[in-house]
């Protein structure tokens, strides 16, 4: 009932924005902490404004030398690009094959513990080190050229696909595995009739995503001499051929765009 007696105004009923961190003390101290961190890092990195302002005319200079992009050496560009794409294809191919045993070994629910640990160690190791570092080692061992790039990308694709696959297998409901085991199936039958039908769609999706990622990565392993368009790009940069560099960059963007389009199209068809 409507009463004429005034209730005391309750401020907690007032609308306020929903905050992610409810406690204002924690929220504000986080902000202050972030500010302090930025200040500390800027001082320790020795970043000064005149450094930034010095860069601006140089950036303008570079831009004017970049535009328009120079496509006159398109043969060199196309050869590098084709090599990159082929490197990505080969690496994805072997990555897909090698990832199957690696992924199975890395799933804790179907293999013994030592195998699991070894496979996980491989995945963690190759995930931690950037492709460039791995590429340097392969260049030292196998010499310059696409072979080092292919091996680098193969290693990283294997670890990526197998990690995704292992996660997929570990998340499988245990019922199906038990059911197949109950029929007296051995390990190989278990893989064929239980694991593979459940893991296949994701495996194919991840592999196609990896193909697209490999195209992106294949453009960079060339910087340490592991072949592909990256080698051409690094050379053009060190000779200050910025207009050719821009031509290469635009081509790479176009290629990645195509690759992404293709991979999205295939993955949407798979679903």
């Amino acid at each position: 009932m409507m009463s004429s007696t005034e209730k005391p105004y309750d401020t907690s009923l007032e609308w306020h924005r929903i905050r992610m961190i409810g406690n204002p003390l924690i929220r504000n101290s986080l902000v202050i902490l972030a500010m302090g961190y930025i200040g500390w890092s800027i001082i320790s990195l020795d970043i000064t404004w005149d450094r930034i302002f010095l860069g601006l005319p140089r950036a303008m200079n570079m831009l004017t030398r970049m535009i328009p992009p120079d496509y006159s050496r398109w043969e060199l560009l196309l050869r590098g690009l084709l090599e990159s794409v082929q490197m990505a294809l080969v690496a994805s191919f072997f990555g897909m094959i090698l990832a199957v045993p690696a992924g199975i070994c890395a799933s804790g629910n179907i293999v013994p513990k030592p195998v699991y640990l070894a496979a996980r160690a491989f995945i963690i190791l190759s995930r931690t080190f950037h492709e460039i570092i791995v590429a340097i080692f392969f260049v030292k061992i196998f010499g310059f050229g696409p072979i080092a790039g292919v091996l680098t990308l193969t290693v990283s694709s294997t670890s990526f696909i197998s990690k995704m696959m292992a996660e997929d297998i570990e998340n499988m409901p245990p019922g199906q595995i038990e059911a197949i085991r109950a029929t007296g199936a051995g390990f190989s039958k278990l893989l064929i009739y239980c694991i593979s039908p459940q893991a296949m769609p994701r495996y194919i999706g991840v592999s196609i995503y990896r193909l697209d990622a490999n195209i992106r990565h294949s453009t960079v392993v060339g910087i340490v001499g592991a072949g592909g368009i990256g080698q051409v790009l690094a050379a053009s940069f060190s000779r200050y051929d910025y207009d050719f560099s821009l031509a290469i960059l635009l081509t790479i963007i176009f290629l990645v765009f195509l690759g992404e389009f293709f991979s999205n199209w295939v993955r949407s068809r798979l679903r």
Binding site: L54, M62, T219, V220, G230, L255, V256
Partner: peptide
């Protein structure tokens, strides 16, 4: 996204030193 961090690095080293 298409240009790798290293390639961006090449660009910005040319700009900022």
């Amino acid at each position: 996204r298409s240009v790798n961090t290293i390639v961006w690095g090449l660009l910005f080293v040319a700009i900022f030193g």
